[in-house]
Design a protein around this nucleic acid. Structure first.
Lengths: 248, 248
DNA sequence: CGGTTCCTTGAGAGAACTCAACGTCGGTGG
DNA sequence: CCACCGACGTTGAGTTCTCTCAAGGAACCG
């Protein structure tokens, strides 16, 4: 991540120079749409790990956020104080869109590495339906992904399948070919996939011994993509846009 | 179930005489709203187990259904032919509403006991927003429940917690106080909760030995409701309307 | 009556968890 | 500068939970 977050505080962004580039949900839109969207964005701002939440569960929904750079997580905290990670958000991802229809945010959001987000006031979302309906559609499409993920994680899969599926998801979402950099800790991965930290480690070690990948801390290199696909495919974490959303 | 489905084939229903009674989503609506809804309903029809699906995944969405009596399940079938139950539908529940925005049904639906459903052509749903907006809101509220359930099932809970949560959900949704009649098989329960049939049996037996409930086949009597609540609460299957829907 | 489905229980196997220990790394303070 | 501390990643050992395989009883149906 060569992007320097320190020098870019709360300035009006320009989508044409965004580090998220084509991974932004606007990718594929017309220049006119990009202009409409650029006008909707109020500011961008840095977010750092360990410095509090971007917003907390239940907070009044004032903004929707778009990840410019870095990585954030959204999570809930149950009555016992246990964190449950709902999603990781990479550059180009939208955060908070599904909370628009509610009084408060459905989850808390925090950076897991130095990040930058665009701030879009909620009031500027609705007008998009008139100004750039295609844009709104792509926005909604993005937001439905987390639902597919929740559904995918509700299946009963082995630890190996979950980890393989997770790596495939990360590969697809980062646009990487074979070399991945995981921004989150093993603990966060385990929390997200509902398994112990140690199990995440062991599975990665096992996959390494099987020649499927090589791993050094948070750097993963996929050696045998077909095999990883076979392992992780059933979970359905990758390519969630093709998945059906929820039961009738 | 004293309701006789044999004599009631495809006749225009009257909401005032519906066996679902107050459990229907219309419960709490005004008389005027009930009239609007009654007009939207085309027919009601019996559905029997083992006689094919009410509709199948991918079928063109022509109708939305409302359970009058009995119990149905919605499910998907994966590439290996394994059924995965997404939801059970009891009297008053709506089936297929979330598929309205799509070309095809998101899942298949079938009766698990002799049932009756009201048929509402999809074209009659949209006009409700003008005629009886409160009705549509309650309809949408109902339909969001399955999402909460998917989220609840994605957590890592013990078999005991899942079964306890399931029983609490059934108690709440049937409006029962302590005596429950489960319309579905142990196998279906296990499929829904993602666990082996035998484990469902064993857990029920264990809860019985602990004095939490007594069970004879599909009849369950809850002896120690507070204890069942303690066990099943964390899963969040009951009272899903209070639950947050999905990650931001 | 024979066949089928469902519910239940037992025995053994396997997967994942907990507990524990150790090495590394980065920051902090003496 | 270096010792210390905490967070993170890894690995081992033992335990626990759930699954699979197997079998038997009960209810239902042709």
């Amino acid at each position: 991540m060569a992007f320097d977050t320190r020098g870019a505080t709360r300035s009006k962004p320009n989508c044409m120079m965004c580090p998220a580039g084509t991974r932004c949900f606007t990718g594929g839109g017309t220049t006119a749409e990009l202009g409409v969207w650029n006008d909707a964005v109020q500011t961008h701002m840095p977010v750092f790990p360990g410095t509090g939440n971007l917003f907390a569960e239940g907070d009044t929904v004032e903004n929707v956020y778009l990840v410019r750079a870095g990585c954030l997580k959204t999570f809930t905290v149950d009555e016992d104080g246990n964190e449950r990670i709902r999603a990781f958000h990479l550059p180009g991802d939208v955060i908070g869109l599904d909370s628009l229809a509610h009084d408060g945010y459905a989850s808390s959001a925090a950076a897991i590495e130095p990040s930058q987000v665009c701030v879009i006031p909620r009031a500027r979302i609705a007008p998009l339906s008139g100004q750039a309906p295609g844009l709104l559609l792509r926005l909604l499409h993005r937001s439905s992904r987390d639902l597919s993920v929740a559904l995918a994680l509700s299946g009963d899969y082995t630890a190996e399948q979950r980890v393989a599926g997770f790596l495939m998801m990360m590969r697809e979402r980062t646009g990487a070919e074979r070399k991945l950099r995981l921004p989150m800790t093993r603990r966060d991965i385990g929390n997200f996939l509902r398994m112990a930290t140690e199990t995440v480690c062991r599975v990665i070690t096992r996959l390494e011994r099987q020649g499927v990948l090589s791993s050094h801390d948070r750097s993963i290199e996929i050696i045998d993509l077909p095999q990883l696909t076979v392992l992780g495919e059933p979970v359905g974490l990758a390519e969630p846009s093709n998945r059906i959303s929820l039961a009738a």
